[in-house]
Amino acid sequence: PESADLRALARHLYESYLKYFPLTKAKARAILSGKTSDNAPFVIHDMKSLVEGEQMINCRYMPLHEHRRSDLGIMHEVELRFFHSYQSRSAEAISEVTEFAKSIPGFINLDLNDQVTLLKYGVIEVMIIMISPLMNKDGTLISYGQIFMTREFLKSLRKPFCEMMEPKFEFSIKFNMLELDDCDMALFLAVIILSGDRPGLLDVKPIEDLQETVLHSLELQLKINHPDSLQLFAKVLQKMTDLRQLVTDHVQLIQMMKETEADWSLHPLLQEIMRDLY
């Protein structure tokens, strides 16, 4: 019976994951490998294709002004505009992660302050795991898989923008080697969200109890789904250490950009999450 409960939990979290996250790993890998009936993604590989690609995605924050600017001005503004759009998508993703968290059995019964803390500390880690399937060594899907942005292009942006994605590529390439599927991912995301060691938690015990159940479900899921992959459960859990360092570095970079980029404004939801984070 216990094993049946753990399988039911895995199915429930997988269904929530499919409900709240629009681009699954299965879909992303199909797009990246060309095995989909949908159109191939538009490739952004330079400033010209960025401007073209930008017209395909929703840029809410800044109007187009490039016809009034010098070439250098266009580059400067396009980078800022692109990252505003990227922030807007991140805010939407945080909303999706929040809905997923609320679907974890027992989560909404936790102290409301603790729910806030778990999300504050967990969402960026979850988002990094979520973008991993969108990445390969050459670039990343963005905008729900409509666009593929090359890694070389991201590296060619001016500092500090060029430093933002490279650590995520390095992490993702290694993480993708674990070959988790969407159901494995759903359970792992729930484990990350239910971390009982986040700073400032008021009542740790119920969080740890919930996490323990999800951990058992993940362990069973990995045994069944990857019978030949030795120590996969341990390897997946080890990624949580790398994730914390990635988030710390990411937040430091964003906070530095807030100070050095005069035209930079951070989305209010990201401000909330990153304020006093690490």
Partner: peptide, 21 residues
């Protein structure tokens, strides 16, 4: 804490679909 995280709090309290950000 929830006072300092009004949007996050709103997302948590919202009962159905993700709210417009």
């Amino acid at each position: 804490l929830k006072e300092k995280h009004k949007i996050l709090h709103r997302l948590l309290q919202n009962s159905s679909s993700p709210v417009d950000l």
